[in-house]
Simulated assay, not measured.
Amino acid sequence: MRAEPFADAELRRDAFLGGKLRLWQPVSGYRAGIDPVLLAATVPAQPSESVLELGCGGAPALCCLGARVPGLRLVGLEIQPAYAILARRNLDENGLTGEVLEGDIAAPPEALRAHSFDHVIANPPYFDTHARSSADDPGRELGLAGPLPLALWAALAARRLKPRGSFTVVLRIEKLPELLDAMKPLGSLEVWPLSPRAGRPAKLFFARARKGGRAAFRLHPALALHEGESHLADGEDYSQIIRAALREGKALPFPK
């Protein structure tokens, strides 16, 4: 748990979406990879709608989503005060309006309980705390291997969603059985695996459900992150659709 605010010397400002965003991130703490950027690209939000991110960290997903869809009401919930402060700074310095609440998913603050949302998103900690060596930085460790079961994340999302609202998650594939069980209170569940390359086993997946949805479960074909059978040259080899989401801020809609 990181409570003390980051000093500027502990931070680095990184470019996202091809330089459209500049986000402060800790040099040694939890740093965003491609997961929150792609998560933001999948959200089917429209201007004037509301979006809640559970465990928003420094708000990379909220910032990427706000940059793509103008006029959203953005709200983040973050348990670590230092990262909540960082999230507010990132939103403000990128010209985005949003609110970041400090609190625990297991016991959310009263201010959150008063609101409902069109969309809830999350990139929960995905490592098993008992099956790995912990990170030296406590803030990074909590971001990678939080102690709360996914059922609590899904239950809070279900309570805060408006009818027909969507809950979208990105996680490592090992967490799929737990998440499927956690999302049972919601409906219209669909899973979209992400593989490193075509024909390779999936390592990540997106999952989406809707409050009150009645559609049958759908498992979509895997989306390859990279082109070709292997990495043959220096530089990026992301597939065109992934590159567009990461570098241009384009949408990454679920398959129909």
Rank of each mutant, 00 (worst) to 15 (best):
P109N: 06
I79N: 03
E174H: 10
A251G: 10
I173Q: 13
L180Y: 05
A224M: 07
R160S: 15
I121V: 15
P253G: 08
A245V: 05
E110R: 15
P147S: 12
Y30A: 14
E93I: 09
G187H: 11
Q25A: 11
D234C: 03
I34E: 04
M1W: 02
V191M: 12
P253T: 07
L39P: 06
F167E: 07
E102I: 15
N94Q: 06
R68M: 14
L101T: 05
R159Q: 15
G71Y: 06
A61D: 02
G187L: 09
S133M: 07
R172M: 04
G33E: 07
L62F: 02
I79M: 09
P185D: 06
A84D: 07
L17E: 05
L38N: 03
I105E: 08
A224Y: 10
T168S: 15
R88M: 11
K250S: 15
P253I: 06
G58H: 06
F16T: 03
G249W: 11
R31S: 02
K20L: 14
P5N: 01
P185G: 10
G71D: 05
A198H: 12
W24L: 14
Q46I: 00
A41N: 07
A67H: 14
R243M: 00
P255K: 12
G187A: 05
D104G: 01
D234Q: 13
R31A: 02
L225Q: 08
Y126A: 03
F167R: 13
E110C: 06
G98M: 06
A215Q: 15
P60L: 11
I121D: 11
A245P: 08
A32Y: 04
A233K: 10
P70I: 05
I105A: 10
V120T: 07
G66T: 00
L223Q: 14
L176R: 12
G58T: 01
R2K: 13
P125Q: 04
D136P: 01
A87H: 01
Y83M: 08
A244Y: 02
H130W: 03
I85H: 09
G29A: 03
L194W: 11
S48T: 14
H231F: 13
V43K: 12
A215F: 05
